[in-house]
Design a protein around this nucleic acid. Structure first.
Length: 561
RNA sequence: GCGCCCGUAGCUCAACCGGAUAGAGCACUCGCCUUCUAAGCGAGUGGUUGCAGGUUCAAGUCCUGCCGGGCGUACCA
């Protein structure tokens, strides 16, 4: 709709160019916005304001000429000049109602677009190391990352979901030592306990399972415990598999899946880490100092150079990170988005600098990042501490068990990633209209309740008659709903482009709110069959859009509650 | 100290990448209510968009400097 109006304006501008009102060479960017105030019509353009100066005319005079040059079109019922020179467009009732027919015919496909043109994009998210259960921060990463994937797919991208983890580094060694200590019956306070060992109770569970000879089936590995407390390698294999399986179960409970699990260790096994070091040395961006090998990241915007190879000969984490992202590029991903906690934001400059130093033609801004800020959890008005110390550790599983997957998802994704988030457990649990998840799901369920009620009352829903009657729906509530429905594809496009799934949550809350208001103020199941079918058709369209939007958030759309 | 993110109603958040009189929900105040499933519905009060400058027809939005909060600032990831 916006595009069509923009095209009409474009034609008017062309005509004014050929008649000399607008300088032929002047570049014109047509912008059509939704209006905030309905007295300003449905759509508005600032075109006259931007053209006033280059054309040497007052904005309102400019607007008059544009309107005069505007081709006739049945979409539009009225055009006005307002304020300093805005051109306000009022859509004809019929064209506004058209959206409902579109929704009903397109169903689940409504709102999707082909912007991505089927190009590959890889989204890396969660990427938790298998050293413990997923916590709320990972949950935010999972909710945002998964929704991002759904959103990109809805915008026509071919999405690959990837989970990267380290199964062999210093932290894994630490994990293995901790499990081994537990397997030998030690506790964190015993003298033989490893220096920075993991103290959580879950370590004991891992050790017991290992000593029981359990078989572990994680998504990407399968291991049986050999029950030998002295076999370090076996314990490591088992512990990693055990914790990976726990994470898989958490992610399944959350409805999040991955296409690829990528091991940091594979980068060493395949020689990719070594090849990356060699390449960096060859390109002349390294130097030795203090028995370590440094990369001149300062040449690419970092505020200090970084160590790649430590004095002890091992590599710092960021080198495999560079090798990993080179590998992504080599796999054909021209676009890569990393969803991570903001506590890792210092890696952004480093990884990008390393990729530039390779001099392989990888674009400067590669990869993209979506960084989410910290999550604070509250219950009973009090902050629940997220600490790794055993006892008061808020795991993702705890949250899902307590408030359900839908509410957890919604709350974690409904705020922009770059602002801090307060997760109110009491609110997420509550089954009232204060709870936005409940409120939106209930709007969807209400549509289906309506259809059931309709049958109970002995009516039959005649969709075609409903569609034909749509132009007769002229109540303010009805027009407002149609306007909101028309904006859904824009919301999908905008959220996809800005990588902000939170926009969908906001949209849905507004739509649900308008639908509830409409439902409360007006009777749907009236005797007049034409009007009844028209209203039900509108309601069904609302239900469809609610379902489509909820799906983008990974939240279910129940038909009854 | 330096870098990144954030600062909008008492609270939780919007505001379609520069547009018109900054919008919702909760809370508060006042009405209505026994209704297709919901103790619900409607209306109202509430703002110098952290502060100070700048850019322009137009700034919550862009630039500069402060103030406040968060996260980083490892030869940890």
């Amino acid at each position: 709709m916006k595009d069509q109006v923009a095209e009409l304006l474009n034609q008017a501008v062309s005509q004014l160019k050929s008649s000399g009102v607008i300088p032929e060479q002047h570049p014109v960017r047509i912008m059509v916005d939704n209006t905030r105030d309905k007295s300003h019509g449905d759509l508005a353009s600032n075109i006259a304001l931007t053209l006033a100066k280059p054309c040497g005319q007052p904005p309102r005079a400019m607007a008059e000429q544009i309107i005069a040059a505007l081709p006739e079109n049945s979409l539009i019922s009225k055009v006005e000049i307002a304020g300093p020179g805005f051109i306000n467009v009022f859509l004809a009732g019929a064209s506004s109602a058209e959206i409902v027919a579109d929704i009903l015919s397109q169903g689940a496909a409504f709102g999707r677009n082909t912007t991505g043109q089927g190009e590959k994009v890889q989204v890396e998210f969660v990427s938790a190391n298998p050293t413990g259960p997923l916590h709320v921060g990972h949950g935010r990463g999972a909710a945002v990352g998964d929704s991002l994937c759904r959103l990109l797919a809805a915008n026509g991208w071919d999405v690959t979901r990837e989970f990267y983890y380290n199964d062999a580094g210093a932290q894994i060694k630490n994990l293995t030592l901790s499990v081994q200590a537990r397997a030998k019956g030690m506790g964190p306070d015993d003298s033989g306990w490893p220096a920075d060992g993991y103290r959580g109770n879950y370590i004991t569970d891992v050790a017991n399972s290992y000593m029981n000879g359990d078989t572990i089936d994680a998504d990407d590995r399968h291991v049986t415990g050999v029950a030998d407390a002295d076999n370090f390698d076996a314990i490591q294999q088992f512990a990693v598999a055990y914790l990976r399986r726990e994470q898989d179960l958490d992610l399944k409970a959350f409805g999040v899946r991955f296409d690829v699990f990528f091991l940091e260790s594979s980068l060493y096994d395949d020689g990719k880490v070594e090849a990356t070091v060699q390449r960096l040395i060859e390109q002349g961006f390294t130097y030795e100092s203090d028995d370590a090998l440094w990369l001149k990241t300062t040449e690419f915007g970092d505020d200090k150079d970084r160590v790649m190879r430590k004095r002890d000969g091992g590599y710092t984490y960021f080198l495999p990170d560079v090798a990993y992202h080179k590998d992504k590029f080599d796999r054909g991903f021209k676009r890569v988005i990393n969803e991570q906690g903001a506590d890792h934001h210092s890696t952004v400059t480093r990884v990008r600098a390393g990729l530039q130093a390779l001099q392989l033609g990888i674009p400067e801004g590669y990869p993209d990042y979506v960084l989410h800020q910290m999550v604070m959890v509250t219950k009973g008005g009090e902050e629940v501490k997220i600490s790794k110390r055993a006892g008061d550790y808020v795991t993702l599983r705890d949250l899902i068990d307590e408030v359900g997957s839908d509410a957890t998802r919604y709350f974690l994704v409904s705020r922009r990633a770059d602002s801090q988030l307060t997760f109110d457990i009491d609110l997420a649990r509550s089954q009232s209209n204060d709870n936005p998840v409940y409120y939106i799901q209930y709007a969807h369920a209400r549509v289906h309740a309506l259809l059931r009620k309709l049958e109970q009352e002995g009516h039959r829903y005649d969709q075609q008659q409903g569609i034909d009657a749509l132009s007769k729906l002229e109540l303010d509530d009805e027009r407002a709903l149609m306007t909101q429905l028309r904006r859904y594809p824009e919301a999908v496009a905008h959220a996809g482009q800005s990588l902000e799934p939170a926009g969908i949550a906001t949209f849905l809350k507004d739509l649900a709110s308008q639908f509830h208001a409409y439902y409360n103020n007006n009777r749907m199941l009236v005797d007049d069959a034409e009007l009844r079918n028209g209203r039900v058709a509108l309601a069904v369209a609302v239900g469809q859009v609610l379902a489509n939007g909820l799906d983008l958030l990974g939240v279910s759309a129940p038909e009854s509650m």
